[in-house]
Design a binder for these strands. Structure first.
Lengths: 154, 154
DNA sequence: TATTGTTATACTCTATAACTATA
DNA sequence: TATAGTTATAGAGTATAACAATA
């Protein structure tokens, strides 16, 4: 009888660990924290780094497009780009043909800074995955991708 | 030459998708959003549900312990528990032997509410995993767990 | 001295709504 | 009418620092 109650308690205690939502949140908290600590010396936040990365990868990308890719609102990007521009990493340039948009381009200083930061981030990822097989690493990325596409099209 | 530049751009554009940090953040954003929508009709946040779950699983757990398990500060739990107590889901009870702590216990109303919410959360998890094999689901949980323990002991 | 619960406070991130200039 | 960028503002979630009671 007392055993029954204890068993129920154990089952319930373990429930949280069985949910992806909870595990994802906890893992994300730790990974974001580690990422933040790596980026801090470069005076960059994860979002700023992601923005810089998108601009590097697709020079001429618009703010609206960056916002869409990052899954945040357009308005949130203004301060982000202001900061990056203030540090001379990206510049806003008018687009012939549509005077509403200002395309984002990396500067040479931005490229140089990005390469340095990129190395630190890669090292972090390697550290986080040091106990993982190549297979596990690939599995995680593919499963997360699948989860994302499944939820995005809802 | 122009091809070279284009190739570099492509490589760089894809970089963000190769990072766990970024993928984890995006996946977490979507999963937390879906979780929030499921909990909203019950007037619970993900943190409140997690707290309730911990109290259900380990009646008598202290606030400090809940904070540790959730990875947040003690101070953040006060409002959380206040809300749960205000709704009659948990109660604070003195502990004989250590008059500093107030143990958290579920009420019968709390148990009843938890069972209802739990069913909704389970349905959500099943929906999110509908295109996944049992193997993939297990792989994700075990990889996330491994990632967590690796980062927690840093 | 250290720990539990608590309060007050501030900060970060993000969303919302409204505006402008363009299309 | 719709879209891009912008601004101002508010809210959620969290951390920090201090305090009283207790260990």
């Amino acid at each position: 009888m007392a055993d029954q109650i204890e068993d129920n308690a154990k089952l319930r205690a373990g429930q949280l660990d069985g949910f992806i939502g909870y595990n994802l949140k906890r893992a994300n908290l730790l990974v974001q924290g580690a990422t933040r600590r790596v980026l801090e010396p470069h005076d960059l936040t994860p979002s700023a780094f992601a923005t810089l990365s998108l601009v590097m990868g697709r020079p001429g990308i618009t703010q609206s497009e960056v916002a869409r890719q990052l899954g945040i609102e357009r308005s949130g990007l203004v301060a982000l780009v202001d900061k990056l521009q203030g540090r001379g990493f990206v510049k806003r340039e008018p687009v012939p043909g549509d005077r509403r948009v200002q395309a984002l381009h990396p500067t040479s200083a931005g490229c140089a800074a990005y390469d340095v930061v990129l190395r630190d981030i890669r090292n972090l990822e390697d550290r986080m995955f040091k106990d993982f097989s190549e297979q596990e690493r690939g599995a995680l990325l593919s499963i997360l991708g699948k989860l994302r596409t499944g939820l995005e099209e809802e």
